Computed example of a mutant assay.
Amino acid sequence: MTTYIIRRLLLFIPTILIVTIIIFLLMWIVPGDTAMLILTGNDPNEGGRVNLADVERLREELGLNQPVHVQYGDWIWNMVRGDLGESLWYQTPVVDELGDRFLTTIQLAVMGILMAFVVAVPLGILSAVKQDTLPDYMSRIFALLGIAMPTFLIAIIQMVFPALAIALHDLAFTARVTRSSMLEVMRDDYVRTARAKGLTELMVIARHALKNALLPIITVSGYQFGRLLGRVIIVEVIFLVPGVGTMLIDAIHHRDFVVIQAVVVLVAAVVMFLNLVIDIVYGVLDPRIRYQ
């Protein structure tokens, strides 16, 4: 297991490198001039009053006049040393601003996934155990509605705290997966054997069926958490939560590509780490899985 973890961690390096190349090139080809936006205060009506010499001077100060490979090399070298650069718009260290906001976003995301998991798993179990009954039909209708409704619409309609707006979609999807997984394991021979031994239905579900049904549920939850980080951006903007999402939208508005690049790389690193954790949990839940 240790060898496997080390190998996976080493794979983070080329993956992150590819992410940095993609996001850097995207920021390079996107139209617009950061120096011009700074001098005009992001007001297009002020463009005619800006001296081009001032624009060129500011571009030189920010290093925007250097070749793309030089800018990329400087950025990567600084990032390796833990320096994410300074915001082009606010002239403040990105790492300072990102630290507090990232904790807020992760807290919101974790609350959302936990709320979804705590409600979805019992709901999916109930739906599977009571197959083709009224509770099953109600659960399936709720799940379909939750999956169909986009997160931003849920947030606008309900106007409840952001974690619930995030959790509802994940809750519905996880409940559907839990139902399908439970239906599959409930038909296995070891479940019938457990019942034949005289165990109560609660013991059969909790000690035998649920443990084996958890693997696909954990997979979906990990996948949902990765997608959830993207949806958090929308929810943070709607509820004015001072997290990474609002920071990213503000950076896009100002074409502050230093901040954009830092946020994208950070989110990519979190998603890769989460995938590694899920693989490790797999080995804990299922002893048959062996990582080399």
Rank of each mutant, 00 (worst) to 15 (best):
I5S: 13
L11P: 04
F12H: 03
I18L: 08
T20S: 14
T20I: 09
I22K: 02
I22D: 02
M27L: 04
D33A: 00
D33E: 00
A35R: 02
I38S: 08
N42I: 15
N45D: 15
N45W: 14
G48Q: 14
N51D: 15
L52A: 10
L52S: 10
D54Y: 00
R59P: 01
E60K: 06
E61N: 02
L62S: 02
Q66M: 05
Q66D: 05
V68H: 00
H69T: 00
W75Y: 14
W75D: 04
I76N: 06
I76C: 06
N78W: 06
V80Q: 15
D83F: 06
S87G: 05
D100V: 12
T105G: 01
Q107Y: 13
A120T: 03
L123P: 03
L126E: 09
V129T: 08
Q131W: 11
L134K: 02
S139F: 07
L144D: 11
G146H: 09
I147R: 05
A148T: 10
P150Y: 01
I154F: 02
V160S: 08
P162W: 03
A163G: 07
I166E: 02
L168K: 03
L168S: 02
L168G: 06
H169V: 04
A172V: 07
F173E: 04
T178E: 11
S180K: 12
S180V: 12
V185S: 06
D188K: 15
D188H: 14
D188F: 13
V191S: 11
A194C: 09
A196Q: 14
L199G: 08
T200L: 08
M203D: 14
N212G: 01
N212L: 03
A213N: 10
P216F: 04
V220E: 00
G222S: 02
Q224C: 04
F225S: 00
G226A: 07
L229F: 14
G230F: 00
V237E: 14
F239Y: 13
V241S: 05
V241W: 09
P242F: 15
P242N: 13
L248E: 07
I249R: 03
H253Y: 13
D256Q: 11
V264R: 03
V264N: 05
A268S: 15
V271D: 10
V271Q: 10
F273C: 12
L274S: 04
I278W: 11
D279H: 01
D279M: 01
V281Y: 07
L285G: 10
Y291D: 10
Q292P: 12
